[in-house]
Design a protein around this nucleic acid. Structure first.
Lengths: 205, 205
DNA sequence: CCTACCGATCGGTAGG
DNA sequence: CCTACCGATCGGTAGG
């Protein structure tokens, strides 16, 4: 009797915890795309990791590129969502920049594998997805540039080339996906603090 | 008579300026690897750009990967060579870091296409080349970390995590290959100055 | 540098 | 989710 109840509860939990086959496919694909790159990952590689035949993948997905699209646009959504809390900050542009950097780092550290695919494999998107992607990126980069421009106008920031500045900041931020270890001792907040402190105040004493 | 002499001189100049077929192959391959990635570039793509058949490529090269190896290890050589002038600088660690950054930027800006392949496609190297490559990179990164450690010891730099600092600096530096335009108005030296000023002194006034 | 060709592998479909 | 299979393309070789 007790055993039956236990098994029943276990079955419910499994249903709650277990990922759908489609989710499993996307998760493993993300790992493979990160490790080998999109082009060098075959559907047979992916199927093997999941223990099924390559043809069976197509019961759950439409194409190889569909997986890439899901990853790239889901991450883009995350970055835009994270910007909502940034917009609330208006005390100073230095503070707003810190918030923006922290928000950006939070998204990356939450899923470094998807971030790697987002940053490195987007060029394999076909049209019109590629153009959509690039338009979103330009929008997002423009928001960082706006903070820089506002900070220069208010006299908080040095006079710099805003685009150059934005590219430098984002490259430092984006690179974290390569070395951040979620099970390490550094929290996402600490990474954000260190990076914003460095980029705003410099290495010199 | 004059025409014959002119043609003769022209022929000599052409010989001096004209790249060997092997050099042409490497140059076009670099462009394609940058644009589409190594794995997504086929030997038929490469042959088409050169106006020959894919099979003809193999009179000049041994394999597709050989081209990638050439690009990656040539760039690695350039980075190590550029370090020689850095070693001479010992007035201060801030100055040495500036020199190191300028040297690094100089190599990247001199050949942004090869740099892109170097930074993005090295993972397609097979063993033992991959291990060699990673060992060289670790050596190079260690040199930047040494400057940071020395600068902290001398009291010039803030107390930071040296590895974190090194990764942040190099990511900013390395990203330049993505946006630097050799025919634009910004000289390699100016890029180096701006980046070292930002990373050493920060954006805040 | 070409023609002709190789075996292997690719993304994906049909039908059950 | 599988078997069986498709046409296309891959890196590369033989022989001239």
């Amino acid at each position: 009797m007790l055993t039956n109840v236990s098994l029943y509860i276990f079955a419910i939990m499994e249903t709650l915890v277990k990922k759908s086959r489609k989710e499993q496919i996307e998760e493993k694909a993300t790992q493979l795309f990160q490790e080998k790159g999109y082009a060098a990952t075959s559907m047979r590689d992916l199927a093997q990791v999941l223990g099924i035949e390559a043809a069976s993948l197509y019961s759950h997905i439409k194409s190889k590129e569909e997986i890439l699209q899901k990853i790239c646009f889901r991450m883009a959504d995350e970055f835009f969502k994270s910007w909502e809390e940034v917009e609330k900050e208006n005390s100073s542009m230095a503070e707003k920049m810190k918030k923006a950097m922290a928000a950006h780092i939070k998204v990356i550290t939450q899923d470094t594998a998807s971030s790697a695919v987002f940053f490195n494999e987007w060029r394999h998107l076909s049209e019109p997805h590629l153009s959509d992607f690039l338009a979103m990126r330009e929008d997002y980069e423009g928001r960082f540039m706006q903070i820089i421009n506002d900070g220069m106008a208010s006299g908080e920031f040095k006079t710099v080339d805003p685009k150059f500045m934005m590219l430098t900041i984002l490259s430092s931020l984006n690179w974290t996906h390569n070395w951040y270890n979620p099970s390490g001792s550094l929290s996402p907040l600490e990474v954000g603090d260190r990076l914003s402190n460095l980029l705003l105040n410099g290495l010199n004493k």
